[in-house]
Amino acid sequence: MMVPVRCFSCGKAIGQAYEEFLERVKKGEKAEKVLDDLKITRYCCRRMIFSQADLIDDFMKYNV
């Protein structure tokens, strides 16, 4: 629904990186570079960020 707070595999807190990642990738920066910049180095943590699809906005449309 929203980006997980921690990496499923190693337990590093990664939730805080998601909003900045989205913003910078939308501006045209390379995803690979942004992740390096955010100090997300292991591939377990990297997949948490770039495979995330936030669905909470869709849920919010139907909530009464």
């Binding site: 929203m2 707070v5 807190a13 939730g15 805080q16 998601y18 909003e19 909470i56 906005d57 919010m60």
Partner: peptide, 9 residues
């Protein structure tokens, strides 16, 4: 430890 972790919208 980090103030920017999203919890809920």
């Amino acid at each position: 430890s980090d103030k920017k972790i999203p919890i809920v919208k």
